[in-house]
């Protein structure tokens, strides 16, 4: 009976993703370049937020420095390209691996501590990265002005030189990432993340190397942010330390929480709320940030589990509330 109920509930879900993908593929026909650029931007944030979903949603770790890894990705391909002439497509894997390695180095020494320490360390790491970029570390980051003249991504002679092409590139990256993240979620590793989130000591006692699985989540999440940075740098071709601002990390964090921590559809809703809507409401000018803040406060009061909560996380949140009363 319960099985049947679950199957019925999941039925529409099976058509949501393909329908969404078809819609995403058809959108360039209907939208002008400005709106397409907004969606492209949202796609970049979605990639970062998917990475953060692995870290925050699956492994239950705090990470408030996602923009630092984004900036590392963007600057790595830019520096390799501008100083050494490395094409973006070859710089991309280097940037992704470098960010993953840095993610490991930053998180590994403190993963056995409680989550709040990790939040502080990642904030500090984000600021260190930004300050290094501003202060023109090794004389290669261009200081506060940043870098310009970065090459566009080109693959087998096909250059991603228009917004439509870049839009499709981001859609493809997001689609592949979604498939990958879903596969991870439903794997031995994904279950291990859930065990750690539910009861770390019990997980450890049952043979889960909790520090290792948390580090893996951190590395994957950082690498995804770096990928987003690479895609950004290769379309905009101009980058500055501003892309690594703390505020950017907060926006990505908000996307994850607003949509519903650990929920993949939630990431899309969150990005719509945090990136697309503020862009479309540019005309309200100075009121914009205040309205976003107000919306966040109302959200946390009325839908604390997010717009489209992950079933599991919603259970955990309600359990926590029961525990408090």
């Amino acid at each position: 009976m319960r099985d049947l109920f679950l199957r019925v509930r999941r039925l529409p879900g099976r058509y949501v993703s393909p329908a969404f993908l078809v819609a995403a593929l058809l959108l360039p026909v209907a939208l002008d370049n400005y709106l397409l650029a907004v969606l492209w931007q949202a796609g970049i944030y979605i990639l970062m937020a998917l990475g953060l979903t692995i870290i925050v949603g699956y492994a239950g770790l705090f990470q408030l420095g996602q923009a630092a890894f984004y900036a590392i990705g963007a600057y790595t391909v830019a520096i390799l390209n501008l100083y050494l002439g490395v094409p973006i497509i070859l710089g991309l894997p280097i940037a992704v691996i470098l960010a993953g390695a840095l993610g490991y180095l930053v998180s590994r020494p403190i993963l056995h501590l409680r989550g709040d320490y990790l939040a502080i360390v990642t904030i500090a790491f984000g600021e260190i990265v930004r300050m290094l970029l501003v202060n023109n570390v090794f004389g290669v980051t261009g200081g506060a002005n940043g870098l310009s003249g970065i090459a566009q991504l080109s693959l087998f002679g096909f250059t991603f030189d228009s917004i439509v092409k870049n839009y499709y590139l981001v859609v493809a990256c997001v689609a592949l990432t979604i498939i990958g993240v879903q596969r991870l979620e439903n794997s031995r590793l994904g279950r291990a993340w859930t065990y750690v989130r539910e009861d770390e000591l019990a997980a450890e006692a049952m043979g889960v190397d909790t520090v290792h699985v948390k580090a893996v989540a951190f590395v994957l999440g950082s690498a995804l942010a770096s990928l987003a940075g690479v895609l950004y740098a290769s379309r905009i071709t101009v980058i500055s330390p501003d892309i690594g601002r703390f505020l950017e990390s907060v926006i990505v964090f908000c996307i994850v929480v607003l949509g519903g921590t650990g929920s993949l559809p939630g990431v899309f809703l969150g990005a719509f709320g945090m990136v697309v809507l503020p862009e479309l409401f540019r005309f309200v000018k100075d009121w914009r940030d205040g309205l976003v803040g107000l919306a966040m406060v109302l959200m946390m009061i009325f839908r604390p589990a997010g717009l489209w909560p992950s079933r599991r996380v919603a259970l955990e949140l309600s359990g926590a509330e029961e525990g408090e009363t």
């Binding site: 596969r183 991870l184 031995r188 279950r191 859930t194 009861d199 019990a202 006692a205 889960v208 599991r312």
Partner: peptide, 30 residues
């Protein structure tokens, strides 16, 4: 100390973690 919000089956599957090996790449490639 069970994992309260997981099913009974998922709870027991936790015991198999240390007897299995698949990592990130294996999970991604299925």
């Amino acid at each position: 100390r069970l994992f309260p919000n997981l099913t009974v089956l998922e709870n027991v599957m936790a015991g198999r973690h240390c007897r299995s090996r698949a990592g990130v790449v294996a999970a991604l490639l299925r």
